[in-house]
Design a binder for these strands. Sequence first.
DNA 1: AGCATAAGTTCAATGGGTCAACAAATGCCG
DNA 2: CGGCATTTGTTGACCCATTGAACTTATGCT
Lengths: 404, 404
Amino acid sequence: MPASRSATSLGPGLPARQQSLRDHNLALALRVVSDAGGPVSRAQIAGATGLTRATASTLVELLLAGGLLTETALLTAPGSGRPAVGLALAPGGFGGLGLEVNVDYLAVTVVDLTGEVVLREVLDGDQRGRSPDVVLKAAARLAASALATAHGRGLRVAGTAVSVPGLVRDGRHVRAPNLGWYAVDVLAALRRNPSVAALDLSIDNEANDAARSEVTAELRSFLFVSGEIGVGAGIVLDGVLFRGTRGWAGELGHVSVDPAGPRCRCGAQGCLEVVAGLEAVTRAAGLTPTQGLPHGVALTAAAEAGDGATLAALEAAARALATAIGGALHLLDVGTVVLGGAYARLAPWLVPTLSRCLQERLLWSSWEGPIVRPAAQGAEAASLGGARSVVARLLSEPERWLVT
Amino acid sequence: MPASRSATSLGPGLPARQQSLRDHNLALALRVVSDAGGPVSRAQIAGATGLTRATASTLVELLLAGGLLTETALLTAPGSGRPAVGLALAPGGFGGLGLEVNVDYLAVTVVDLTGEVVLREVLDGDQRGRSPDVVLKAAARLAASALATAHGRGLRVAGTAVSVPGLVRDGRHVRAPNLGWYAVDVLAALRRNPSVAALDLSIDNEANDAARSEVTAELRSFLFVSGEIGVGAGIVLDGVLFRGTRGWAGELGHVSVDPAGPRCRCGAQGCLEVVAGLEAVTRAAGLTPTQGLPHGVALTAAAEAGDGATLAALEAAARALATAIGGALHLLDVGTVVLGGAYARLAPWLVPTLSRCLQERLLWSSWEGPIVRPAAQGAEAASLGGARSVVARLLSEPERWLVT
DNA sequence: AGCATAAGTTCAATGGGTCAACAAATGCCG
DNA sequence: CGGCATTTGTTGACCCATTGAACTTATGCT
């Protein structure tokens, strides 16, 4: 379960010193361990990185002392020779925390260095009626309690990633129309809780973090399409999220799929969101949005019951999705689409049509057809992805955590 | 005129050695010189990079010895103190060559380290009737002659970038339907010419190289939209071309703008290319494509004459462009659109409508409106962009050219 | 002429990776 | 059961790039 393979290189624009060599090679060695399925030896690290065994040993020694690696049982060599000492990411040392503030729940996830979930808590409840202050106070309490539990188990939390369902400006102000938030400084509000204030906080869009949660060693580049009332996308390229010049990339919901379609709140006509968003599909299916329940539930039930209007609405949504996603794939040249959010639950009815339409559209489908699959992570994926992004940062900049 | 600011960092996945420090810092120092408007002193390099004056001096010495830099006149300091020795990119030493094979011409451009054109030659003529072998033989001769001239002026050509109007697979095989080429190994054919064989050849799509030619110090991220018979785009992010996972990114021509539109040769309906490509616009304007002449010429003439049908056709094309480009901007979050190819000539009629429609569509237009402008480089931009990309590579990896 | 100031150079010190030799730990084979 | 091949991991001398501080050089200002 390696997290993101962020660039373990010296920052462009910064001078390279001796210490930079160390930093780079530490991250390199660590990545060999995190990318390998099982335990790895010092000699294997040397082989995989191109460093000498001497250097690999030195680096490993530092990572062991810093609590990022642990020695495991001996590895039985295939032939003869001295058996190797196994090395693995330390499961009990450092961890990452993800805090998700969403429309109808709050969630917190803590993962260890291997990306495994060690703690998860969800607080259901519609947040729309409550003021940002009240919501964020509850979220901070949730994070603080998770933090205390993690500390109790000996886990050091290296950072906290906050996920919100909206646009983030300047890394601070959140505009989340679905929550009725227009310029809420989420991090400042969270920091009012003293035990959260001590944390290294960062914030990102919920779809972005959900996309991050789908990164695996095998699948490193894909388009993550999250469908709820709004439609958003996370673009993941070689394990790192593509953010665009201002951090607003991935607004798939406002790609046009029908120039003569219904008007969208953004001002344009026929945006994907107003054609294939949950609200539109629910209405097209002839269902009334169940009060308090997420739209996806009613839709899924109707589809499972084989309701004709619902199946037709889903078919139409899949076609619209194919139009928008096809355009995105032509622009971005990624080979895989991951359906998240409510689309994941609706995948059985969306994937066949979507897959077929994409196959028909894509220029290069005769060489390499697109792969469409539902998200592997279920609900609350954003808090997992956020937590993993903390760990990914730790793994790519280990020197920051190796206090001498 | 700095060329692309490619990452001057140690390759990810590669071990960092002492030599890597040197390489990184050499590129860093060189970039300070290339990014600065005028001559720079050693002390300024030290200040800008964070290196010590001692190190900056050492690096500059190497770059001088390698012929990448030259000393210029003394710089008058603002206060008193010892005057600094000016340093600038050596204009006469190294250069890059771009060779463009296009539908109705062949072009070659040679630039020096500063990105200035020192030599350009264009061979007009429709290449569609001729076999790839004949075309590429002529192209190789053109390159060889330019190379000889450049050598005669003392310029060492560091590499050659070939631009073709089609998809490139595996860095070798070119599929260019407009030329009637389906799997032509362009580089192998060019190498049959002995004086070209010695060059370090690379190959890319013509639109990509044209996009590269628009990169300046001020404009480092944009969507370059090239309209001819086909429509393609080059996505430039912080000075480097975004290529996607397989190198096919930027196929804007096959983004759908009208699900009920005419069928495209790719199989889908309503692709931008069949709605706003030159052929479609020409037909919509009621013009017959002038035999042998590029479509854009007839259109431009009719538009200048104020022909009503033509103006209406261009207006419709601009709307279609807005639909497709709007989607791309929402996905990629870049702020500027550069119109290239025939669209550059048609810009006076396209930009107003396109700009207004984008303003209406874009989610964030109230914060930051999109900028739309025609390409600064005219025809044969691809050969310029290719030549510049060679120089950009040289500047980002200077150690490869500093023979000890 | 003398002084302040800034540019550029010199050189010992620091620190990180390499290289080669060596020690340690196992399987294999006689 | 003992020697041998084989592979792992460690040690120390060496190399090399950057640092930092002292020093030299070249100019303007008073």
